[in-house]
Computed example of a mutant assay.
Amino acid sequence: MSAHLLARATASLHGLALGDAFGSQLFVPANRHAFSSRSLPPGPWQWTDDTEMACSIYRVLADHRTIDQDELATNFASRHDFDRGYGPATNRMLRLVREGGDWRTLSAELFDGKGSWGNGAAMRVAPLGAWFADDLQQAVRQAALSAQVTHTHPEAVAGAIAVAVATAVTVAEPDLPAGHFLDRISEHVPASMVHDGITEARQLLTISDPSLAAQVLGNGRQVTAHDTVPFTLWVAARERHDYEAAIWTTAVAGGDVDTTCAIVGGIVAVAEGIRLPPQWRRRCEPLPDWAGAPSLDPEPAP
């Protein structure tokens, strides 16, 4: 296994988990003041299904260096913790997979045979983009494979591709201006509402107010890929060299905050010079041992 691939994916996974855990705290009514005051919610911060599923992607890549869909489905099902905030359709599907159901049939049958167009495939994919950052076409193919295990709708697949490519481009082309960053992503995202949203996000780069941008692009409130991914890429394009600024910018727009922060965190964590803030790390729940992800470098002394 190439050490640099693992290191990149590890950095993305830790950034994703930290964003997810931070965002999950902002659903707690007592912590809502953080939106306006930008004060950190008290710890510990627990991560959600976003991180649990990202850990399965990481584990499969570490073991196989590619997305083995059967192995990924088995990992998703066997590691499934009902209390992590999964949606009802995913809860049911993963339970049936554990009971011997065929994930291909179950995934395709969701939502009257249309498949899920939710943001679940996008929320977990950033470490894959980091892994395949040296080959954008491979990042696209592997992201699609990872999505299809639970999300067969083209919008969900497009959302996963967009986030994976955004992470890969953050690694491979660190100095791209914000507009060119979004252009590079758009080149690889198939025609879809997600693609249209990224085009719209590029037009909104001159706007500095994330709430206004989210009014146009969505903030994940509908829990769909096209209501989630364009806004997260708008944030990443503008703030990908400052982890704290990126996560706060994402969070203040509201919506599906744990998922939007997970996506942004997974992308921004692989930018040049990024170190995850020690104060935040101390509050965050550790990654599960089964993921096999190395710990980050020790925190600097306070």
Results as ranks from 00 to 15, higher is better:
278 P>Y: 02
253 A>S: 08
278 P>W: 00
279 Q>V: 08
87 G>W: 02
42 P>M: 01
199 T>V: 15
8 R>E: 13
129 G>W: 12
188 H>W: 10
137 Q>Y: 03
38 R>M: 05
117 W>Y: 13
242 D>W: 00
142 Q>N: 04
183 D>S: 15
137 Q>D: 11
22 F>N: 11
130 A>V: 06
241 H>W: 03
247 I>G: 04
88 P>V: 14
230 P>Q: 13
50 D>Y: 10
218 G>I: 08
34 A>Q: 12
178 A>W: 10
230 P>W: 13
46 Q>E: 15
76 F>A: 08
56 S>V: 12
69 Q>G: 06
16 L>C: 03
199 T>C: 14
282 R>F: 11
156 A>Q: 04
214 A>F: 06
274 I>K: 03
64 H>T: 05
79 R>I: 02
26 L>M: 10
104 R>V: 00
92 R>M: 09
192 S>K: 04
93 M>P: 08
147 A>F: 03
75 N>E: 15
27 F>A: 13
208 S>T: 14
133 A>Y: 01
245 A>S: 14
136 L>P: 07
173 E>K: 15
183 D>K: 15
108 A>V: 03
162 A>G: 06
297 D>S: 03
177 P>L: 13
37 S>W: 01
270 V>G: 06
157 V>I: 11
101 G>R: 02
197 G>R: 12
286 P>F: 09
193 M>N: 13
297 D>R: 11
137 Q>A: 12
132 F>L: 02
6 L>Q: 10
191 A>K: 15
292 G>F: 03
6 L>H: 01
251 A>L: 07
147 A>E: 12
182 L>P: 03
208 S>P: 05
123 M>G: 09
237 A>E: 09
48 T>Y: 12
210 P>V: 03
202 R>G: 11
6 L>D: 02
299 E>L: 00
102 D>F: 08
102 D>G: 03
112 D>Y: 05
77 A>V: 00
2 S>K: 15
199 T>L: 14
255 G>A: 09
